[in-house]
Design a protein around this nucleic acid. Structure first.
Lengths: 241, 241
DNA sequence: TGACAATGACTGACTAGTCAGTCATTAATG
DNA sequence: CATTAATGACTGACTAGTCAGTCATTGTCA
């Protein structure tokens, strides 16, 4: 396989940067203003957390771009601006790194979904707000790539597929089903069978995510407009917004 | 250690060393012997075609199960019952093998889709027949895994994503759009905007494919029933035929 | 406060494999 | 027997994971 060809903005050779001798007004407690010239105050714990964050970000980029098997930890380290050994101070091995990464990345999804749906008006409005959030913050951002990554690697990482199903899919399905049922009792939705297949509500969003990854360059997709038409199908057409 | 981070249980080395002349002579264990024995009247061209088919089938299994990067050609050869060198008599390298494989596998999709939609009754019936075919022959078979494979590897194989978009997606979209427009003029579909997003028609089918790969074990999905509800949303409810 | 010691985060050369692709040798075919 | 097909041992490039050593930071003491 070809080696890296991109690798934008080569990060400097890590935090060697000794002898900076910044004219920092030394605080009484921390005489550690040497390396901390760049950032205000960074003690050991903070720096470690920063490094970990850098590793996580770098690993995310690489895994998304190449998938699990084709990602080289040397590249992750280089992109994070650390030595390879440092990776192993934060993660047991490549596989744990990958799984932990996915888990971390999925948490925002869960939080977003766990927010109470705010049903102060028509159910359709709640669903539409939900869809706007999803499309704006997931389908059109890097989080969408994570969903694609789960689809791609799920079969080889059952632990990840299980986790995702348990934490996101089944919960989201339950929430959707409740919403559908509410809408049915209110007379907003006529198809009672829809409650059996909450997947139908979110299917266009999933397709939008995939489309953006694979075909955006061929034919850009206005995911939100598409979803609004989809809602018209479910709730019946309506004019005002 | 090294890169033995793969999950699949490594197949044991099996019978090693020594050119086993005797074995090939008596039992149909050896692949070459088997082929020759089963098809007595196989000439060179036929045998070559058979071998190629065996390689294609084996490679498909491996690529689907492991993805491109994690698939070992040694395993493909073993599964196909040929030596590794034989692979290179049929394919230039691993990458060509993968791309050619996808292309080969996608042809049936195209053929299926290219079949004239047979609009002798309501448009809904045509779409429903189409969906039945799709779900029965793709979502519930190995071809569905190929779609997942394209989703998984597409970003790293633009040639494949391009090919798939050109040969399947854009054609399918055009066909769907024509169908929608016909249904609109006939009054079967009310939402005129649907013609702008033919993706909405097939979205549940795509989701079904992904669901089968990832979550079937957690919660089996009756894809056909789901699609019928979906069609009710689009065409309006109707009692079963 | 300044000097020295202890700590442990970080490094990167190195080990122990792995695997795509090659090619000399052997088998099959016509 | 002359070709062509097939084989599988071999090579070399590549990479996950390790670990002995470095040095910035922190703690201690006068």
């Amino acid at each position: 396989m070809a080696k890296r060809t991109d690798m934008p903005t080569r990060t400097p050779p890590a935090g060697r940067r000794t002898t900076i001798r910044a004219a920092a007004a030394k605080t009484p407690k921390a005489a550690s203003a040497k390396l901390a010239a760049e950032r205000p105050a960074a003690n050991r714990a903070e720096k470690s957390a920063e490094r970990r964050a850098a590793i996580v970000a770098a690993a995310m980029d690489e895994f998304i771009a190449r998938g699990f098997a084709a990602t080289r930890l040397d590249d992750v380290a280089k992109r994070a601006g650390v030595a390879k050994g440092t990776l192993y101070l934060h993660f047991k091995d490549k596989e744990s790194m990958f799984e932990e990464l996915i888990r971390t990345a999925v948490v925002p999804l869960i939080d977003r979904m766990a927010a109470p749906p705010q049903i102060t008006g028509p159910v359709r409005d709640a669903v539409e707000r939900f869809a706007e959030t999803f499309i704006h913050e997931i389908a059109e951002t890097r989080r969408g790539d994570i969903i694609r990554l789960i689809v791609a690697e799920g079969p080889r990482f059952p632990a990840i597929a299980d986790f995702y199903f348990r934490e996101v899919v089944s919960r989201g399905m339950a929430a959707m089903r409740a919403l559908i049922q509410l809408a049915i009792t209110r007379g907003e939705i006529r198809q009672r069978e829809l409650a059996q297949f909450p997947q139908l509500i979110v299917a266009p969003a999933i397709v939008a995510v995939i489309w953006q990854s694979l075909f955006a360059r061929h034919a850009p997709l206005d995911a939100l407009a598409m979803f609004r038409v989809h809602l018209d199908l479910i709730f019946g057409e309506r004019r005002t917004a």
